[in-house]
Design a protein around this nucleic acid. Structure first.
Lengths: 230, 230
DNA sequence: CGCTTAATTGATGTTAATCAAGAGGCGTGG
DNA sequence: CCACGCCTCTTGATTAACATCAATTAAGCG
């Protein structure tokens, strides 16, 4: 089993990177690999999430349904990210849904909690990660609160390319957006039409180039950053 | 020292509630009580936060400065809340500033980390709390993303009364708002004028009663909840 | 190749920001 | 104790940004 971890796609980025080979071997025994198809949910809001996992490939969304019945996306998960709520009981507040086909390395929650108790370094790292995620969410909150539609879209594209692209957000980087316009709107608190208009505007400025709805190339990173308001 | 903890105002709510009396005594030895005046900062964005603390009384804000130079408030801290970033190095993203006079029970960060390592229950609880805080921040994000100005203000008042009022958000509950209109605007992503107008509107509806700028009484909790969009 | 769904584009309406005064508290000093 | 000035809050008029409504075009897929 251990060799599985050694060949893990997110070996360097994931939580378990903190573990020594022997510890990793012990953990890998209880890991289950699992694939979730695009559009399928891993958890639903209201369920108690009974497993913890590391996202190995693909992108997921955290989405909630508003009082009005529309979808709102409150976060995205990328390879290496941790999923689950150890030491927390009660229903999840959001759905966790695969945007693309996704591969997970998952553990029953109780077992994962036991592993955390046994490997303090793992627990400390998870705490650090969660605090960092909290910070990132707060930064996002800042953007959502006061940035213009143009800044939101530009900032989102930057973030997306930085996390999906190999080299970060540099000229020529091309990525396939894992979200539809509707999902982008749900994430950014805008309408589909506004997102679309801003995309065309950014293309008109020469900051990005679009091909089809989802192929995105960065043509002027500095311009995009300026549009994002930074 | 231990008797200090026994008489602690937030003994039941704070993180250390998880500890046995003996453990508490050990921890209390390295605790420093400290008062921060209204308007004073505990940390500044860019500093490395070298201490961890429990907020004992008063209210604090987490605030960042936008590219445009205005203040944005990304969170509030109430008695019993934990402050600090154990196992995380690097600069804080936000200022932590007292809105009212505040009392803290603080620990040098390294010592607090050692305590976490020594008391796994404490660490598990902090992780659970941080995950819960993340969830709350995401709910807030949801509100910031799409709620109308009226819903934001009503939702904020509800939250505030629930956390400051003894009985929660019930008819007749009166609280002193710890934020100015400007700070409310910075928190809600609105302008001072819009906040003020919404407050007057809620008063006109009979949901709340205001006296002076900051004295708030809830007159119709159900109406307020309806305005918050829930 | 035609159908279906997603994305773009245009015209109009609404909401909250902005600009601009005025009113109410509060502390200071006469 | 009252007058003055400062600051916060409130209120009004106008403008700008985004939502909404309504087609049209482009893409994905059998």
């Amino acid at each position: 089993m251990s060799n599985r971890c050694e060949s893990c796609m997110v070996r360097d980025r994931a939580l378990c990177a903190a573990l020594a080979p022997a510890e990793l071997a012990a953990l890998s025994v209880m890991a289950t690999r699992r694939t979730v198809a695009a559009g399928e949910a891993l958890f639903r809001a209201g369920d108690e999430p009974l497993l913890c996992a590391t996202l190995q490939s693909g992108v997921m969304k955290l989405s909630a349904t508003t009082a009005g019945g529309e979808e709102a996306i409150v976060g995205l998960l990328f390879p290496g990210d941790f999923i689950g709520r150890p030491f927390t009981t009660g229903a999840a507040g959001q759905d966790v849904v695969a945007l693309t086909e996704v591969q997970l390395c998952s553990f029953p929650r109780a077992r994962f909690e036991a592993a955390l108790a046994e490997h303090p370094r793992l627990e400390a790292l998870l705490l650090g990660r969660t605090l960092a995620e909290l910070d990132r969410t707060r930064e996002w909150l800042l953007r959502m609160g006061r940035a213009s539609a143009g800044a939101r879209v530009a900032g989102f594209l930057e973030d997306m390319v930085r996390r999906l692209g190999v080299l970060g957000c540099t000229a020529g980087t091309t990525v396939e957006l894992p979200l539809s316009r509707g999902e982008m709107a749900a994430l950014l608190g805008l309408t589909i039409e506004t997102v679309s208009r801003q995309m065309t505007r950014l293309q008109g400025l020469g900051a990005i180039a679009l091909r089809g709805g989802r192929q995105l190339m960065i043509t002027a990173p500095a311009l995009l950053a300026a549009e994002a308001g930074r």
